[in-house]
Structure formats: C-alpha cells, structure tokens
Simulated scan of single mutants.
Amino acid sequence: MDTTPSALTIGCFRYDTTQALFEGGIDAKVTTAPTLPEIFERVIREHEFDVAELGLTFYLRLLDEGLPYVALPIFPNRVFRHSCVFVNTHAGITGPADLAGRTIGEFGTYGQDSGVWAKGILADEYGFAPERSRWVIGGLEHPAPPFGFIPHPHPARADVSEAPAGKALGAMLEAGEIDALFSANVPQCVLDGSPNVARLFPDFEPLERDYHRRTGIFPIMHTIVVRRELLTERSELARELYTAFSAAKDTAADRYRRDRRLYQVPTMVPWLDALVERNEEQFAGDWWPYGIEANRATLDTYLRYHHEQGLSERRLRVEEVFAPALLGT
C-alpha cells in the first residue's frame, strides 16, 4: 500500500471548520457527499477512506466489531440540542414531562448522535426517561428503513419500532401520527411554518447558553477516524492530521474574528457581528476546541449517556475510544 501523504483519501462534510482542507490545506484527496449518512455508510460498509468523519455513536457501536479505524479527538460537527426536539402542537406537550407515554420519531436509528444528546440532556435536566415513551425509527422527509449499515442496540424495556411503510417522520409529526420528533435536521414542515409543529423549547438559545455556562459542555456529534494500520505504519500521522484539521478550524474562526472589522460583510447574515461578540465572551477565545482535555467533560458525558441509553454494554472511558498518540492533547 502506498502510504505517502499524497495517497491519503479523506471523506468529510464541507463545513467552515474543514473548508481549508478542501482548498489545499492538506496533502490528500478530500471528498464529500450530499449527506452525512452517505459518508458514514461508505466508511463502514466499504472502508473507502483512509481518514473520515464518522458519527460518535456509529463509531462506538462498532468498536468491538472489527471496524478498522480509530478515532482522533477532532470534532468537526457539534451542536447544542435543546433545539432539536419538535412536537405536534395539538398533542398537549408543553414541557419535557409531557413526553412520557408519547410516540416519538427518530431519524435512522434509536440513538443517533443528536438523539443521544437530547435524551441525555432532558434526562439530566428534567427527569426525562426515554423508556417511558414509544419510539418510531424512519426517514425524515422520505420513507426509509433504519440504517442498514450499523447495529441497532436499545434497552429491552424501550418500545422501538420502524415507521409504517410509505411514511416519513416529518409528515407523520405534522399529521399528528407521532407526538414528537428528535431530529438532527429541522423538518421541512417546521421550515414551512406549519401551525401543527413547533419546538419543545421555542426560545432555545438562552437555555442552551445557560446549559453551557453551568456544565461546560458543547455537545459533540462527530469525530474523525483514521485507518488503524496507517497509524502503525506512520507514527506521526495522528499528530499530522490533528495539526491539519486544527489549522483548518482555526482558519475559519480567524476569518469570523477578522470580519468583525467589516461587520461580517462577506456573509449575508444580519447582526452576525453581535453573535460573534457574544460567543467570544462565552467561549473564552476558542469556540470549537479539539483535543481531549478541553472536551473531557463533554466526552465523558456522552459516553455516560451512550451506556445509560443501552447503546453500549458498558460505560466506556475516553482513553479506550481515541488514538493513544493524542490522549495528551
């Protein structure tokens, strides 16, 4: 196998945190796909890339099943998740306690990364118990079976079923066929302003900011993985990749900071300067840290949620999940 740097293939989404890599910030072939699940499937089924983005739960579910990749503490996708719970406005759900006994949709699998975080946060903050609800797994805007390229563990006490044939979760939520939806993406019916759907927490930003201030947690969705054999063959590869991805992320952050002088005119988002300034104050200079120590509380919490929700047989430790060469980051 040719393991020179130019032979590396990288599959990841084109975020502002990774844009510089697509523009030549690394000596590798960097490609993407229309959707993230497509990248994940190509990694898991075909082992197509040398380096790739992978959802945390997708990686954790396969740790003991011979997936030939190891994770690096690089996190290109992270999102606060109070905002990802949607409800039918006629279901009588006015707060998290009202989710008990309801039928809730979830995209792709029971416990997608966004769902792990949302369930865990609601459990910690509001006493939500996922096993007290019924869960329906399917496609968001188009009918689709649960992901066929990963295992689907869930607690025996949890009532989990597939969406009916020909049914998509967004339309089911709008029609009242499910009471709520945990979704990484905003359903089209919400974007269209349907009066039949709303967020569980309509004013979510103050809640998410307060959650971050109290806990220090900025939820992580995805990590970067690399072929295990390449780390054996090239002892410095983990550090090289960490440096390259970190530089790409810092390039994006620096652009937002520089553009404050111009009131962010390279973008078309009004008041973006004010948002950048609020984030600078809240995140103390690094909105989006990579590495283990800056993210230990977030990672430990995710691993706890993953176990509590029946997605891993035991509570994993951070040191078991990431490449040893980068545990000191």
Results as ranks from 00 to 15, higher is better:
residue 139 G to Q: 07
residue 134 R to L: 05
residue 70 V to K: 10
residue 229 E to L: 10
residue 298 T to V: 08
residue 108 G to F: 09
residue 86 F to V: 12
residue 309 Q to R: 10
residue 240 E to T: 00
residue 213 R to T: 15
residue 121 I to K: 01
residue 317 R to K: 02
residue 107 F to H: 14
residue 214 R to H: 15
residue 292 I to E: 00
residue 288 W to A: 03
residue 238 A to F: 05
residue 306 H to M: 03
residue 28 A to I: 12
residue 300 D to Q: 02
residue 116 V to N: 12
residue 91 A to T: 14
residue 57 T to S: 08
residue 22 F to K: 03
residue 225 V to M: 14
residue 201 F to T: 06
residue 199 R to E: 01
residue 223 T to S: 09
residue 248 A to G: 11
residue 107 F to M: 13
residue 166 G to N: 08
residue 98 D to M: 01
residue 44 I to M: 06
residue 135 W to P: 15
residue 273 D to Y: 09
residue 205 E to Y: 09
residue 270 P to N: 00
residue 27 D to Q: 02
residue 239 R to E: 15
residue 32 T to G: 11
residue 119 K to V: 12
residue 267 T to I: 02
residue 159 D to G: 02
residue 51 V to F: 08
residue 198 A to K: 08
residue 90 H to P: 06
residue 257 R to S: 01
residue 121 I to T: 07
residue 5 P to H: 05
residue 242 Y to E: 09
residue 199 R to C: 03
residue 115 G to H: 09
residue 44 I to E: 05
residue 199 R to H: 03
residue 13 F to T: 13
residue 194 S to L: 05
residue 23 E to F: 12
residue 112 Q to G: 15
residue 143 P to N: 01
residue 100 A to L: 09
residue 280 E to Y: 07
residue 101 G to C: 02
residue 279 N to D: 14
residue 267 T to D: 10
residue 81 R to V: 06
residue 304 R to H: 08
residue 100 A to P: 11
residue 289 P to C: 06
residue 320 E to H: 07
residue 193 G to I: 03
residue 218 F to A: 11
residue 304 R to T: 12
residue 188 Q to W: 05
residue 169 L to A: 11
residue 16 D to L: 03
residue 109 T to F: 12
residue 150 I to Q: 05
residue 61 R to E: 10
residue 298 T to L: 02
residue 159 D to F: 10
residue 30 V to L: 01
residue 7 A to V: 13
residue 258 R to D: 11
residue 6 S to G: 13
residue 271 W to T: 07
residue 170 G to S: 15
residue 252 A to M: 00
residue 24 G to A: 04
residue 58 F to D: 14
residue 318 V to S: 03
residue 75 F to N: 03
residue 288 W to E: 06
residue 129 A to E: 15
residue 255 R to I: 04
residue 190 V to A: 05
residue 36 L to Q: 11
residue 42 R to N: 13
residue 17 T to G: 09
residue 175 A to Q: 10
residue 139 G to Y: 06
residue 306 H to S: 04
residue 139 G to N: 05
residue 140 L to Y: 12
residue 260 R to H: 03
residue 175 A to I: 02
residue 81 R to L: 04
residue 188 Q to A: 13
residue 247 A to W: 01
residue 259 D to M: 11
residue 193 G to R: 07
residue 187 P to V: 07
residue 207 L to T: 11
residue 2 D to S: 14
residue 121 I to N: 05
residue 1 M to A: 14
residue 122 L to D: 01
residue 49 F to T: 15
residue 216 G to A: 12
residue 288 W to I: 02
residue 191 L to Y: 01
residue 62 L to V: 13
residue 32 T to R: 03
residue 42 R to Y: 10
residue 239 R to L: 06
